[in-house]
Structure formats: C-alpha cells, structure tokens
Design a protein around this nucleic acid. Sequence first.
RNA 1: GGAGGGAUGGGAGAGUGGCUAAAUCCACCAGACUGUAAAUCUGGCGCCCGACGGGCUACGCAGGUUCGAAUCCUGCUCCCUCCA
Length: 386
Amino acid sequence: MPFFTLTATDRHARVGILRTPHGDAPTPAFMPVATQGSVKALDSADLRNIGATIVLANTYHLYLRPGVDIVDDLGGLHGFMQWHGPTLTDSGGFQGFSLEHLRRITEDAIIFKSHIDGSEHTFSPEAAIRHQQRLGADIIMPLDICVPADSDKDTAAAAVDKTHRWLLRCAETHSRADQRLFGIVQGGMFPDLRRKSAQFITNFGFPGYSIGGLSVGESKQAMYDTLTLTTPMLPVDAPRYLMGVGSPEDLVESVARGIDMFDCVLPTRIARNGSLFVKTGRLNITAARCKRQYAPIEEGCDCYTCRTFSAAYVHHLFRAKELLAYRLATIHNLRFILRLMEEMRAAIIAGDFADYRREFHSRFAPPDERTRRDQKQKWLASFGRG
RNA sequence: GGAGGGAUGGGAGAGUGGCUAAAUCCACCAGACUGUAAAUCUGGCGCCCGACGGGCUACGCAGGUUCGAAUCCUGCUCCCUCCA
C-alpha cells in the first residue's frame, strides 16, 4: 500500500489517507502537539477519544530530557507515551528559530545552549536524524533553518541554501525504511526563493513535503499568498504539510490551497490560557459573563467537556486554578479543531468545500490582526527578547 | 486600672511634609497566544469631563499648623500587645 493516497479533490482542496506502520490518518489531518511526549494536560486515551489520529513530538526537547536513549529503551515514542497511532517528530529546526538567542548556527550545525540548564548541544543534520531514528516516529523531519518573517532576502536565501545542503545530509543519514523523511520548503516571503526551494526539494522525490517558515510573524495575507504560490509546485501525489499552522481560519484557508497536514500548539496553548473555540470565534472562559453560563461552552459541541459540564463549571475551574480546567479546555479546543478537519474532509468529498469555507468565514471571527501583532511583541519583550 | 502599638484604596501591605490618586502583591475587568523556554503574557482597576489634558473627592473621625499634610499638632472613636 502506498504511503499516501488521494481519495477526493475539490478544486485545490484534497482528501486523502496517510498510511504508517502504526495506522492510518485521513487528511487533511491536524496533529496535536506533544512536544515533550505529552499533549499538555492529556493522555493518549484522551487523544483517542477526541479523534486524534496522528500526533507530533519534538526531537530537541526529548533529546534534552529525558534523552533519546530512554525513549528508545521504552519502545520509542509509541511505547514511551503509550500512543500507538501514527506519529511525527520535528527535527529541532524550529528551535533554531524560537530559541534564537540560545543558539548559534554554523555551516555544520545548530549549536544550542540548553534552555533547561545552559549546557551546549550540537544539532547537526546527521544528529537530528539519528535522534529521530531512535525516537522512532513514523514521519520525521530534516533539520532546517527557519527565519523570521521580516528577514531580508539575503538572509532568507542563505537559509534556503543551507536548508537544502542539510537536507541532503539528512537524506544520506536516514536509514530506517519504516520512517518517512519529508523535505521542507523554506524561502521566507520571497516567491522566487520559495520556487527555488520547491524545485530543489521535489527533485529528490521525498514521500512528503513540508512547508516551513510560515506563521513566523508575517501577515495572514502574506502567509496565504505564499501558500497559494508554493503548494502548486509540490507533487500532487505526496502529502503537503504546513508546519506550525493551526488557527481555525488558517486551517480552512490552507486546506483550500491544497494542504494535507498541520500541527499547531495554538489550540492547546490557548486552551490552557482560558481561550476556547466556539462557532463564532473565541470565548475567553474566564470572562465575567461566563460565571453564570449554565449551558455548555458551545451548544451542540460533541466534546466530552461540552457533553458533560456547563461553561460556568469550566469558568470556575479556571478561576480557582484547578488542574482539571486545563484538561477540559484542551479537550474542547482539540475536538473543535479535529471536528473542523472532519467537516472539511466531508465537504471536499461532497464537492461543496467552497460553500463550507464561505459559511465558516461568515460566522467565525478571528482576533484583530493589529492587536495580535502588538501583543505578540510585548510577549516577546517579556521574555527579554524583542 | 497602668504602659505601649496601630488605624492607608475590594483584601494584604509600603509610604512619615511637596516627586502621592498613593509602591508591591492578591482579587477584579479586558485582551493576546500559530513546527511549545507558554497553567503564560499585556493592559486596566476612586469619581467626573468636549479625555494623550483637566476637575473633584480621598489615607479612622473632628479640628489645627503650613504656601503645601496620608505624613506634624490637639481631641475623639475603635483595635491589638504587655503589666496589674
């Protein structure tokens, strides 16, 4: 059986199936993020119950703690976290971006100063692959270089070239036939760089293609434009994975542009901070108006939280800082996203994805983009990074 | 009965003549979070106004000193500790 099969298309939007040694995952697929071997606040039974089919973990974090040898000893990621479905690991490339001030990049590797204890760790392309082979995920990523959205063209071009050189080294090191190594397209917001990257990478015939370097500070329009341009350059018969994306509106827009796989911390992170997805947008559950909302968070939602508890209860749990708040909120947000994926797949199969997309945007209001940008800056500043 | 100490904004608690509508923390109100250094962060938080400025009322109560008082003085009320 092939690794990936397309089963339906509706203009650019696609439905398919991903086959791995640990089971299948229908696409478009959303992968909840289990950075350190756990989708924060949930266990694998919860994941199964909300309909997750494939999850993502992070090589850098698991390498630092507990160490890939321990994960390996316990049967790899699957045995370690007792999730027996499909898995994917990120290489640590993104930490070269998110932990910018804790690393330096040479021709050979990304050299990190551990965010845990300050110790130094060299992530070469080869090491990133070796570690991922021990973690044992079904799909693995090459070590790439991700640059901020406002990078100038020289910076973005240099990152693309190095990503390409590293990709070859990763492919050379990669030896486990049961793990699929994807290629990653970079290129910042520059159409010609994206084109160049897509051409280079597709030349080598990877089983799947990731689009990296998006959702790194650019406007939504810039991201959508880059996707519109990049996706058609990738082979139709391989899965396209948009890395790190995940707001409901972005998922819909990306599926419309032909993306098959996603991962994002947004649903789980904002859940822990009391922001919950509902039909019309986001609901801050800690808001005073929820104190006496005896109805569920979202009427008609099929998640465990909404089937069982009132919004007032979840509101109370957050106010009281009860740990259950994080689990119930995470279950709700992930279920919202996974249901969104299910609905999109159904709409594509039915051939009315355009209607679904229109209907979605007519009711779902994302946060104001200016506010997002301003708040994000302040957030980074609070970390001592501007 | 005697000797001390104390009363500050919703709570705790700084502040002992102007830089104080009053630190800080909590609570409260609102917002943000996109391949997770994130159960985090950012604002707001006396009242009023034609508001990136202005006015009014405020630090137990009542007076007083001073150009100016939460801060000094007098009296009162209440609270706490110790001694009898």
